[in-house]
Amino acid sequence: MAIDLRQLRQFVTIAELGSFRRAADALHIAQPALSVSIQKLEHAVGTPLLARGAKGVSLTPAGQALMHDARRALFHAGQARQAARRVALGEWGTLRLGFVGSATYMLLPRCLPAFRERYPDVELDLREDSTVGLVSMLRANDIDAGLVRGPLVEDPALESWVVERDDLILAVPAGHALAGLACAPLAQARHESFVMYSPSKVPGLHGVALSLCRKAGFTPRISQQGIQVQTLVSLVASGLGLALVPGVTRAYSTPHVSFVPLCDPDAHQALSLSLVTHRDTSCAPVLRLRDSMLDAPAR
């Protein structure tokens, strides 16, 4: 006959209080029902566990032997229940989070410290890749969520939330004629060479940058392509052309490159970083991270 946790809890309560009556009151159960339950426990064990006496109830030698393991079983059951609850609430577990490089400029430093302080038992497994690579990893279940550059192609299996918006600005060599301007129309760069994002690896940024150039009346002459924003900035510093980069790139300024705001209205809030995950995700920490990012104060 099996022993259940309810019986062990009743047994421990009787032993600790030394009375069936007091235990019944503490457990909110009728005393006859408690007596029947303990009889079933003793039958399952195969020997008496409690002895009634003039001074109350005491443990038999068998009861003393059971007491230690009963308390330990109740403790571990409580721990297991709490752990399962915390996992379900997203307060414990592992979160495999992918991110594009530019998420490290502002978004991650702004949001992750508060998230880690609030959920210290969620282990973060961080992986950097391109937007295309992250979406592929997500579909293969290699990560639980990704921070990617939009816009994203509609996918009914995925769900996304914009967690940061940013302007598109112009990166130019430090000695360039546009360097130091408070604001410049993109059309002034129509005759320049550009270093551009790879259309196959970074389609979102590539499409937004190309569209902005076309709205300014020209198709950019592309000299080099790159995947990471910092790579494009390095290519600009090397004199290989100008680049359109997120405004947050200014946080990692270099003496060899100047960042020039654009006057073009379409450049304002042209970019987005989105948290994307499976629509039916079972990884509750993803939702806690989403809430933290959406609630975080804007930069």
Results as ranks from 00 to 15, higher is better:
16 E>D: 14
18 G>A: 05
19 S>P: 04
20 F>N: 02
23 A>R: 11
23 A>W: 07
28 H>A: 15
29 I>R: 14
30 A>K: 14
31 Q>L: 00
37 S>H: 08
42 E>C: 02
42 E>G: 02
44 A>K: 08
45 V>R: 04
45 V>K: 04
47 T>M: 05
49 L>W: 05
56 G>W: 07
57 V>Y: 01
61 P>H: 00
64 Q>H: 06
69 D>F: 00
71 R>N: 05
72 R>S: 04
73 A>S: 11
75 F>S: 06
76 H>M: 02
76 H>W: 10
79 Q>R: 15
82 Q>M: 08
83 A>T: 14
86 R>H: 09
89 L>Q: 14
90 G>K: 08
90 G>M: 01
93 G>Y: 01
95 L>A: 09
95 L>P: 02
96 R>T: 02
96 R>D: 02
98 G>S: 02
98 G>R: 11
98 G>Q: 06
98 G>Y: 08
99 F>L: 12
100 V>M: 09
102 S>D: 14
103 A>Q: 03
110 R>H: 14
113 P>F: 00
114 A>S: 14
115 F>P: 01
115 F>G: 05
117 E>C: 00
124 L>M: 11
124 L>P: 06
126 L>Q: 05
127 R>F: 13
133 G>E: 07
133 G>W: 06
134 L>F: 10
135 V>Y: 06
136 S>Q: 13
142 D>I: 11
142 D>E: 15
145 A>G: 10
147 L>E: 11
148 V>M: 13
